[in-house]
Amino acid sequence: MRRFSWFNVVSLTLGFAFLYIPILILVIYSFNAGRNVAVWQGWSVRWYVEVFDDQQLLDAAWVTLKVGLVSASVATVLGTMAALAMARLGRFPGRLLFSGMIYAPLVMPEVITGLSLLLLFVAVDFDRGFWTITLAHITFTMCFVAVVVQSRLVGFDRSLEEAAMDLGCRPTATFFRITLPIIWPAVVSGWMLAFTLSLDDLVIASFATGPGATTLPMKIYSDVRLGVKPEINAVCTLVIAIISIAVIVASILTKRQEVEREKAERAAFAGG
């Protein structure tokens, strides 16, 4: 079968151009010397200096970073536990309800999720702020982690765990020494996905926020409503750079881990 097709090449080119040309334009205009974001007036880094002089913007970025780190970490732990339950426990009582509750945030509109969480926080008289945003982000990012980790557990060779336990390794030690290192790339991918979703969220955070807890997307949205400022291009470029570096570093570490595991398996096979 012929795999090369000009239709496929043109379709991919147009698709990537549609996705990445606007981002490239944003990055280029973040170095625009003029305040008018639609007219190029030369190269300058003045808007990056303005970003680091804007205390409100820095505070919003710091809140977003803290929420992302805490929510992604907790969501990764809970999502991994949920994936293990769905992949290992078989058809336990209440599995259908449990799976539905895990997957519901994937298809639930963010407005409904945000409004329901707002009603919950009001009903229990929980002061809205940093922790309510964090809990809200844990709620809707945990399901993404569960899906990613469960897809890795489906093809997991359980004979490795059985061999470890036959040699006297306890179940907990088997998980941390055998299972977790093997599924670690999926766990890291789930964490990065949860962290990215937390950084990007606007709707749910708008419902769950309170005084003194403004996230960066909320700050950018409130500023853009009054007109796009060049500082917005600069801060968006910084976010793109940070995420790109994190993805590259995670990819390198994952690839290195896979290479080391392959070497260890070859050495064990040669020794056997």
Rank of each mutant, 00 (worst) to 15 (best):
S71H: 04
A75N: 06
G79M: 00
V122S: 05
P211D: 05
V149F: 09
D125W: 12
F31R: 01
V27R: 03
I232T: 05
F126P: 07
P22T: 00
V37R: 03
L238P: 03
I182C: 08
F176W: 15
D223C: 05
F195W: 15
S5G: 09
G168A: 03
G129T: 13
I25P: 02
L78S: 04
W131Q: 08
G79D: 01
V111S: 00
P185L: 06
A241P: 01
L180R: 10
I133F: 00
Q150D: 14
V107C: 02
M142N: 06
F269K: 14
T237Q: 07
L117P: 09
F121M: 04
G272R: 07
T76I: 02
A163G: 13
S189E: 14
G94K: 00
R158S: 13
M165L: 04
L58K: 05
A246G: 12
V39N: 06
T237R: 08
R2F: 07
T196Q: 07
F98W: 01
Y48S: 00
P181A: 03
L135S: 07
N36L: 12
A83D: 00
V147E: 05
F175H: 02
R88K: 11
I183W: 10
L197I: 11
A123P: 06
L193V: 15
T237G: 12
V224D: 03
F175R: 08
D200C: 06
S73V: 15
D53P: 01
K219V: 07
F176C: 03
R266S: 14
V148I: 15
T214Q: 14
S44Y: 10
P109S: 06
L12P: 10
L89E: 00
L58Q: 07
V224Y: 06
R2G: 09
I182R: 13
C169V: 15
A241L: 14
V51Y: 08
G100R: 01
E231T: 14
V63E: 01
P181N: 03
D200I: 11
R91V: 07
I243F: 11
R95Y: 03
V111W: 08
V239S: 12
W191A: 15
P109G: 03
V239E: 12
F156G: 08
